[in-house]
Computed example of a mutant assay.
Amino acid sequence: MSNEFNMRICGEQDADDGYQIVTKMGCKLIFGEIPGDDLAAFCAAKGRKNWLLDAHLAKRIGATIVCGPADGLKQLNEANLPLSDERQAEVSRAQSNAKIPAAVVEWIRHGRRGLSSEALCKHFFGEPIDAEKHHPSDPADLNRCLMFLDAAFGTRTPVQFDSVRSMGPYWDAYVDHWDELVSLFENETKGAKDWQKAPETYNLMMKIQDGVRQQEKVRDRNNPQQRG
């Protein structure tokens, strides 16, 4: 019996509602656009109170939502699930570019990617081509950037990192504090069970970002004609 089926509100059963739910390793993978009422019913179902969402895995495989218990999500991430068409296209372009190392190709394929780590990858290697110049906003973003740098350069402070300044004032400010930020994050999260909270790292990141915002306010006051 196939583990693929559709869902109607108040239950999971066969229906032609334009979306599909797949059950794998105790988790649910939703493909297609799911109406709000159906989503509310799905989330309220018994036994799902402590489930987690995995937006990174969902993006990798082209799902709308991937959710489930922590151990099931871990198994899913380790499984060789088919990539989305978009992700496969990124991998194919990277594989055809001799300047992109194999480790970076693998990061593009299966890495824990976020907007800021994708910005770094595009800056250094040109992929993903639709990435923008987002900066890390919190320790979770920072960690994904560090994992990318580890994969791409084998170090979290590569000699090329100063070039990141060109991505805008926030990245410029982060480069000024990068060694301090990396050291603080590593010390604070060493052996921690819930490293994403990393309050000292978060506070430093907020201080850096606030400094940039204050500089922008001063600039706008001194150059009102440049606003907008």
Score class of each variant (00 low, 15 high):
Phe5Ser: 15
Phe5Trp: 13
Asn6Lys: 13
Arg8Trp: 05
Gly18Ala: 01
Gly18Ile: 00
Ile21His: 01
Thr23Trp: 04
Thr23Ile: 10
Leu29Asp: 05
Ile34Cys: 07
Asp37Met: 15
Phe42Cys: 09
Lys46His: 10
Lys46Pro: 11
Asn50Asp: 15
Asn50Gly: 09
Gly62Asn: 07
Gly62Cys: 08
Ala63Gln: 10
Gln75Pro: 00
Leu76Asp: 14
Glu78His: 13
Asn80Glu: 15
Pro82His: 05
Ser84Cys: 08
Gln88Val: 04
Val91His: 06
Ser92Leu: 12
Ile100Trp: 00
Pro101Asn: 00
Val105Thr: 04
Arg112Asn: 09
His134Gln: 08
His135Glu: 10
Asp138Arg: 07
Asp141Leu: 00
Leu142Gln: 06
Asn143Ser: 08
Cys145Val: 00
Asp150Thr: 06
Ala151Ser: 13
Ala151Asn: 10
Thr155Arg: 04
Thr155His: 02
Pro158Leu: 05
Val159Phe: 06
Gln160Cys: 06
Ser166His: 01
Tyr170Trp: 02
Asp172Lys: 11
Ala173Ser: 08
Val175Lys: 03
Asp176Pro: 03
Ser183Asp: 15
Phe185Tyr: 15
Thr189Gln: 11
Thr189Trp: 04
Lys190Leu: 11
Ala192Lys: 12
Lys193Ile: 09
Gln196Pro: 05
Gln196Phe: 09
Thr201Ile: 00
Thr201Val: 04
Arg213Ala: 12
Gln214Cys: 07
Gln215Ser: 12
Lys217His: 12
Val218Ile: 14
Arg221Asp: 12
Asn223Asp: 15
Asn223Glu: 14
Asn223His: 14
Gln225Ala: 11
